[in-house]
């Protein structure tokens, strides 16, 4: 279970990014709405466990209460026979889904990338509806 380390990394990267891009927003009440992370199919990270750890690890930080949005990136290999990139239907079988050629050349699918952070401007925060 290394999702807690991953969540901790994510939080410090996010806080650093907020600090750099929007220093005024760093200090007070929770204004971070959403944090979006791209997770490759072969990143070795379990999305459910990461959600759980994120919620715990963001407590008492400016990210508390924010939502972690996980975008899954499929595994994409390069097929030397087709000379094209192909998305793998299963990571248990590294063969080109078009022509059946085995290939170990992974082009995408190991991503673990903080893509964006959605903030809500402090003076426009409205109480939660309903």
């Amino acid at each position: 279970m290394h999702e807690l380390s991953i969540a901790t990394n994510l939080i410090s990267l996010a806080l650093e990014a907020i600090q750099n891009k929007s220093p005024a927003l760093h200090t007070s009440a929770p204004r971070v709405d959403q944090v979006t992370l791209r997770v490759g199919r072969l990143a070795g990270v379990d999305a459910e466990a990461l959600q759980f750890c994120y919620e715990i690890a963001t407590r008492d930080t400016p990210l508390a209460g924010s939502q972690l949005v996980i975008e899954e990136v499929p595994a994409v290999v390069y097929c030397p026979a087709c000379q094209a990139e192909r998305e793998l239907p299963s990571v248990q079988r590294f063969v080109c889904p078009e022509c059946g050629q085995p290939t170990a050349e992974l082009r995408r699918g190991r991503e673990l990338e903080l893509t964006c952070i959605q903030l809500v401007e402090p003076d426009t925060v409205s109480p939660p509806a309903g």
Binding site: N9, L13, L112, T115
Partner: peptide, 14 residues
């Protein structure tokens, strides 16, 4: 209420 998006694109394991 206008949300503001910060584009980051950073690898967590960088």
């Amino acid at each position: 209420m206008t949300p503001r998006i910060l584009e980051i694109r950073k690898n967590l394991l960088k």
